[in-house]
Design a protein around this nucleic acid. Structure first.
Length: 159
DNA sequence: GCCAACGTTGGC
DNA sequence: GCCAACGTTGGC
């Protein structure tokens, strides 16, 4: 049974259009430097799982859907002193940070705004909506995933 | 720009 | 192990 996830990113840094423009629409989800988020990627994500692609900060909203196409492997950007996410405590021999590869599936014609999620029945317990939630990678319940997709389709149909 | 909430660091 | 200080995230 595939699980569902949410990937958070600032669109000014990496947007769903950026992902869609890559060859095959595939990108590694590198740069995560939070242990809880890492553990989700390293231990729980499986090929074929689906994820919501969330834009934070500017027009906070769910922008589309991605799929996990490669399970976790070491995040080599942690080894590069020139990289913004460099971490000297991570080495090729003892990698500390991990990432998965995601593939672009779909961009919503009408992104689902955060403020709409907040008022939608069935999403009360969504991790994203919890006060002070700052996780950049988090699980999403199957029902929650379906509700968000339905909201996007409703918006596309002018409802 | 503001500020609440969070994770990490480091002194003790 | 505790906790204050700090830097960061992210909504508004």
């Amino acid at each position: 049974m595939p699980r569902h996830w949410l990937f958070k990113t600032e669109p000014g840094c990496f947007s769903i259009d950026d992902l869609a423009a890559l060859p095959g629409g595939v990108s590694s989800w590198d740069g995560v430097r939070n242990y809880q988020a890492r553990n989700f990627m390293r231990d729980e994500m499986r090929q074929g799982d689906l994820g919501l692609f969330y834009h934070s900060v500017t027009n906070p909203s769910v922008a589309g859907i991605v799929e996990i196409v490669r399970e976790s492997y070491p995040d080599h950007t942690a080894w590069d002193p020139e990289n913004n996410h460099f971490d000297p405590k991570s080495t090729p021999e003892a990698p500390r940070w991990f990432m998965v590869d995601v593939r672009f599936i779909r961009k919503f014609d009408h992104p689902v705004p955060l403020r709409m999620l907040k008022g939608t029945p069935g999403l009360e317990r969504m991790e994203l909506l919890k006060k002070g939630s700052r996780l950049s990678v988090m699980p999403v319940a199957e029902e929650e995933f379906a509700i968000v997709c339905a909201l996007a389709d409703d918006a596309a149909n002018g409802l």
